[in-house]
Simulated assay, not measured.
Amino acid sequence: MIAVFVATGVFGTQLLLRGGEDAGQQGQDRQPTRVGVTSPQMRSIEDAVSAVGTLRPVRAVDIVPNVAGRVSDVLVTSGQKVSAGDLLIALDDRAARAALAEAQATLNETEQEYSRYRQLEDSNAAAEARLEEARGAFRRAEAAVMMAEANLEDRTVTAPFAGTLGVIDTEPGSFLNGNQAVTRLADLSAVEVSATLPERYFRQVRPGQTLEITTPSYPNATFEGQVTLRAPEIDLGTRSFEIRAEIDNDDGRLVGGMFARVRLVLDTYEGMTLSEDAIISEGMAVYVYTVADGTAERTEIEIGTTRGTMTEVREGLEIDDRIVVAGWDQLTDGAPVAVEENPAERGDE
């Protein structure tokens, strides 16, 4: 019986050793994972900052009559485009015309009187005091005519510049008190966007830089403009500063009050980029799998800005590295790989 137990133990030990050898052999014979690879590319990279802002016309004013009066005619409609000097609203001007006619009559009389005394002065027949009195009356009559003309002109409301009118609710026969805005005029040939940026970007912003905006009204359109103003100081409450940019609006699609997403390009430089499909993020770790000698190696990287499908790689890779872009979800560090010649998905496509 002792001999039987000894023989059984020896046989079991041989089986265990043989099983371990077989498992090791299977590990060495593990089939490589088929992967697609790509390589980093050198591209022009934009260092940009994003913000939100509001659009407003480059020029906009409330149209308010200079004097009180009753409306005799409204010559425009809401939303109408007008040119500089176009007549918008006319007030009752009968009294103003009468006052101008009276002032002109007085001017004619004083002018004749002043002319007669000047002729008498030439013949030494007029006293100096009477001449000065006639001259003064003539000058006052001229001023009265100018005042009457201005009063008559104030009975018409005209456009100070070319633009688009807002809503007009005024009707003929209504009375305006001289303080009430009848509409708003906006020059929409260009619009201005205003946004605020954190203090850390202050030294990088300057007039003339390119700025892009998008709006919810036109989600597939991008509008480009130029920075016209950087506030000269930082707001103490928010630790931010205001920027303004002007954007051409020849087609009139943009209007005041629109919400805008702003993207300001601070700098442009050449840098290494990689398809975002090859980049793996796990918590705070960002890495890729590189391929060398048929083996996958986990490689930590530092990334920068992303533009489209390409992401800047600041550290961790060389330009000639081969990076797994398809099949990395089946890899571990040190796993054998077989590279496909025509992967279904490539980072440079």
Results as ranks from 00 to 15, higher is better:
8 T>I: 13
8 T>C: 05
14 Q>I: 09
16 L>C: 01
32 P>E: 13
34 R>I: 13
36 G>V: 11
37 V>G: 15
50 S>G: 11
50 S>V: 09
51 A>H: 02
61 V>N: 15
66 N>P: 03
66 N>D: 15
68 A>V: 06
71 V>A: 09
72 S>W: 03
73 D>S: 14
78 S>M: 06
80 Q>E: 07
84 A>G: 02
87 L>Y: 13
87 L>N: 15
94 R>D: 11
97 R>W: 04
98 A>W: 14
98 A>H: 13
99 A>K: 01
102 E>N: 15
104 Q>W: 03
115 S>C: 10
115 S>L: 12
116 R>V: 12
121 E>P: 01
122 D>Q: 08
122 D>V: 12
123 S>H: 00
126 A>R: 01
129 A>C: 02
131 L>H: 11
132 E>W: 03
143 A>Y: 04
152 L>T: 02
153 E>W: 04
162 A>S: 07
162 A>Y: 11
165 L>T: 02
165 L>S: 02
171 E>V: 08
182 V>Q: 03
183 T>R: 12
184 R>F: 02
189 S>H: 07
189 S>M: 09
191 V>Q: 00
192 E>K: 12
196 T>K: 13
203 R>M: 11
207 P>D: 10
208 G>P: 12
209 Q>M: 06
209 Q>I: 02
212 E>L: 14
216 P>T: 01
218 Y>W: 10
223 F>S: 00
232 P>D: 03
232 P>C: 03
238 T>V: 01
240 S>V: 06
241 F>D: 03
242 E>K: 12
243 I>H: 08
245 A>W: 07
246 E>S: 12
247 I>M: 09
248 D>M: 08
251 D>K: 06
251 D>M: 03
255 V>Q: 09
261 R>N: 06
263 R>G: 07
265 V>E: 07
269 Y>F: 15
270 E>C: 08
273 T>W: 01
276 E>P: 00
278 A>Y: 00
280 I>F: 11
281 S>A: 14
284 M>I: 06
286 V>G: 14
288 V>I: 04
288 V>W: 00
293 D>M: 11
297 E>F: 14
305 T>N: 12
306 T>N: 07
307 R>K: 09
311 T>N: 07
314 R>N: 14
322 R>H: 05
328 W>N: 12
330 Q>V: 07
331 L>H: 03
332 T>S: 15
332 T>M: 08
333 D>F: 01
334 G>S: 03
347 G>L: 01
347 G>W: 07
